[in-house]
Write a protein that binds this DNA or RNA. Structure first.
Lengths: 249, 249
DNA sequence: GCTGGATAGAATGTGCACATTTGGTACGGG
DNA sequence: CCCGTACCAAATGTGCACATTCTATCCAGC
């Protein structure tokens, strides 16, 4: 998180802290993304406000923002819940990713230069190293970053944002439908795509990418038991410099 | 559910009306989309609240929602503004649309059946009829609907949503950078894409689609004088007459 | 005459109290 | 014993008042 060690304003009471919004948002966003909150869990405003040690209005604003971003779903007068995606929803995400990447690869082949090719190869090298070192966390992260890298190469902010959104949604899905051990893509598949691009073989690159996604899609299956935890216990007081007396029951 | 079927609560204008949110959102959304509000215009909360005849909090919520949807941009403590896209932004939108449609066409070719083909041909027929009748409004609407139709054919909600978002963004752009007279696509180009699909000639369909978008892209140019109107005059009080009719100046 | 700062006005942001709705529960009737 | 109804508690939604921040104007100083 961003911290300013140089100047800390005197107002530490947690009242008018403009960073509190972002802190709450980041905490909830990460918790949803990493699957720490079971799908279908209702996120009540009051308990969250007490857990974070901020006002209910602040929680409210963040929750509505997450709803607008489709990360939570809201029922009028009945609060917000963590959406429970169906298997078809997950397949739709991966299909969308596959379709989008096919278009991106076609476009990318026209403007692929040596510098970009070198960067992609370096990235695959990093993935291989992480895989050899059995660094699972790095593998998952780099695997997603590979697809993002391809999209970013076009320099189109819209495409990058769309792909980034799809990736974060996949992350949510993965926690529900896929075992973590299987969640990262195969490294050699990424390398094959890059080499096909290097040969300007667009059709081959797209085909490899398609097979790649279909493979991930085929591995999907419903996990038996999503974790059920109390949201109030999940979020401790945020930011040691901030509020420090949320318990009042 | 309701225990009192006989009593319909008298909807007090502006107080506890749950439809007011949607009405304000729809009015603002449409105004932004149709370019009735000049790019760069600051949307102050108080004047809007008075114009719509609702509380400032309601306006606030709608404005923040529009910001979350990237339809407006916000500067902390300085209100929200209608974003002013650069020419590069517009090109990025169209490139994203082109890239996405290329992927969609490739995928669609595999699952194209006679029924879908018939529907697409019928849609092109409607476009031709609208073009012959010089119905410009219908032409613009059907032209956008054509691309949406293609994406919807895959039955993927994610892809449809992404394309719908790109289309609405194009609409905004068009009002700034393109003369309305040129804003709809050529009908024969749409027909050619459909016929290429009918022959299962994916490469040809994608090439046609690409040329199609590049053509639209090439027509882009900065319009000299965006309209500058007062937002307070634009939005009459809602809920009384049932509709908001903007006053064009 | 021009520049800089200070002040007043306005607009945005936030917390609080209240209104409305929902879901559960207990009670009474069939 | 079961079902329908009325009440109660909790949670969400909303309006209002206040705090904070930005902007524009005016005045003093150079």
């Amino acid at each position: 998180m961003s911290s300013d060690p140089t100047i800390v304003p005197a107002r530490r009471s947690g009242k008018g802290d403009p960073e509190a919004d972002e802190a709450v948002y980041a905490a909830l966003h990460a918790a949803i993304l990493e699957g720490r909150i079971a799908a279908g869990t209702k996120l009540a405003e009051t308990p969250l406000a007490e857990a974070f040690g901020v006002s209910r209005e602040r929680i409210r604003k963040v929750l509505h923002r997450l709803v607008a971003e489709r990360r939570l779903e809201a029922v009028p007068n009945r609060g917000v819940r963590v959406p429970q995606p169906t298997l078809d929803d997950v397949r739709a995400i991966y299909q969308a990713h596959r379709v989008l990447e096919a278009g991106v690869l076609r476009e990318l082949a026209e403007k692929l230069d040596d510098r970009l090719l070198g960067e992609l190869r370096m990235h695959v090298g990093q993935e291989q190293r992480a895989a050899m070192e059995r660094d699972r966390a790095a593998s998952v992260r780099l695997s997603g970053a590979f697809h993002l890298r391809i999209a970013d190469a076009l320099g189109n902010a819209q495409l990058s944002a769309m792909l980034r959104d799809l990736l974060t949604r996949s992350s949510i899905m993965v926690s529900v439908y896929e075992s973590i051990a299987e969640s990262f893509c195969g490294v050699q598949e990424h390398g094959a795509i890059v080499e096909a691009l290097a040969r300007h073989d667009v059709e081959r690159a797209i085909a490899l990418s398609g097979d790649h996604f279909r493979l991930v899609e085929a591995r999907l299956q419903l996990r038996p038991q999503p974790p059920k935890v109390d949201v109030a216990r999940l979020f401790g007081p945020i930011g040691e410099a901030g509020g420090e007396e949320p318990v009042r029951s």
